[in-house]
Design a protein around this nucleic acid. Structure first.
Lengths: 243, 243
DNA sequence: GCACACTGTGTGCGCCATACACAGACCATA
DNA sequence: TATGGTCTGTGTATGGCGCACACAGTGTGC
């Protein structure tokens, strides 16, 4: 129960002020570190985020960061905390399906704007304020349904996993749409060459009948909604069972 | 169409022998690299896999690996190719639900045995033999259903994503079950402290009514099957729509 | 038998995370 | 108001990493 058990990073993110202490005042706040790191990651991917680069961005020395952050992993936690803005407002009057869809799309958009999020090795479950706010928002999407709290957690995690997963598939970590298209073309070509119909009939079948239209830009809208619909259908059947 | 366009690693994994060439014969095969790297990763996590460690494991110098592998990322590709054995046999007489469940459980088991798989940054879609075999096996699970090839791909990916996602959630990358339980206890305690009912009523609700029984070991069996069932219900409704 | 492509090796570079010792800044207490 | 102790940011140093490059030896096709 003692707050001091919290890691330093979490204490600072929750604004838990220790008693007024001797020594010089800190020159900046941990959120400054987060902002600087996010700026670097947006520009050059997660690989562009190093302690020295972040420190240089702030105008301080590398080692100064360790007064705020215990290790590099903590830096990732801070980045995840600050990269998402507030979750969307969910209209309580709308049906749960609309609400969780809004939530999922907002999450998805965040991941597309900051693809490096998917590269962060997740070592610990979320405990930072903004992350919990998103969790709470996702759970609220199921308000009014007959789902138990555990059901809601499972359902929210299911949608969360789906969004992360699809984003992972599409995000070739490329910012340039041309590069994405080229990568995709090359992949299809190689797959056609390697997945011969005799040994891989199922894969070959998907290749023979290519998707409806232009491919690159369509996934994010059509395919995403299609797969999400399937997931939500599963949740719907759970709701039916609970009624 | 030219096979030489394939990256060297893929050529070696598909056993595409270039014409007999001058120079000394290679001292080992790329699969040896894969085995050595997997051994290191199983023992000490993905962080224990470095070019020099792998080379030392094989009894060669660091730089010798670069005769087989263009970069560290290729090493990951080789590891992913060799870490999974053959996909399970899927009985064509059983219903699709049983088949894809078998497939999902086999995949899940592989991820639990080698948690470091989830840490590998996936830069490219799968093209190696064993990965395609698993893909094909997953697609075959939907044989006999009215799903189109694209539907089957989407459904297979959905299950794939689900398994990866749940494995990600449970795998605190811990091998020691006591450590898992302790981590979970600590997390629940901190969450209880931070997620106050006034600001986070949904989260607090899930905490008030803890899951049925012992928690740690149960997820992998019960909770996994529960979530998978929800996903499959969604696919079932897609099948119904296609009929 | 010879040319040359290919092999594994050794050295070295730049970057990384981070341990540690230090000089100065500031607050609680006297 | 003085001062002790603690916290601040800094400089230096270490061990590890991925990988570029030059090299000497090997074996195949001509």
């Amino acid at each position: 129960m003692d707050e001091s058990e919290l890691p330093r990073v979490l204490q600072q993110m929750w604004g838990i002020e220790g008693r007024s202490r001797p020594g010089p005042k800190p020159a900046f706040h941990i959120s400054d570190i987060g902002r600087a790191a996010i700026k670097l990651a947006d520009a050059g991917g997660l690989a562009a985020v190093s302690m020295s680069k972040v420190a240089a961005e702030l105008g301080f020395t590398t080692m100064s960061l360790y007064r705020y952050v215990d290790a590099k992993d903590d830096l990732y936690v801070v980045m995840l905390e600050h990269v998402f803005s507030e979750p969307p407002e969910l209209d309580p009057k709308k049906p749960w399906r609309d609400r969780i869809t809004t939530w999922a799309e907002a999450f998805h958009q965040g991941l597309r704007q900051h693809p490096w999020i998917l590269q962060i090795p997740i070592a610990e479950p979320p405990l930072s304020p903004n992350q919990l706010t998103w969790m709470e928002s996702g759970l609220q999407a199921f308000a009014g349904t007959p789902l138990t709290p555990q059901d809601r957690l499972s359902a929210m995690l299911l949608v969360n996993i789906y969004v992360r997963g699809t984003a992972q598939l599409t995000a070739t970590m490329a910012t340039d749409p041309d590069a994405v298209a080229e990568t995709d073309r090359l992949y299809t070509q190689r797959l056609t060459m390697l997945a011969t119909p005799d040994r891989f009939p199922g894969i070959a079948a998907t290749l023979e009948q290519p998707p409806d239209e232009g491919y690159a830009g369509d996934f994010d809208s059509t395919e995403f909604a299609f797969g999400l619909g399937t997931v939500l259908d599963g949740i719907q059947s759970l709701i039916n069972r609970r009624s």
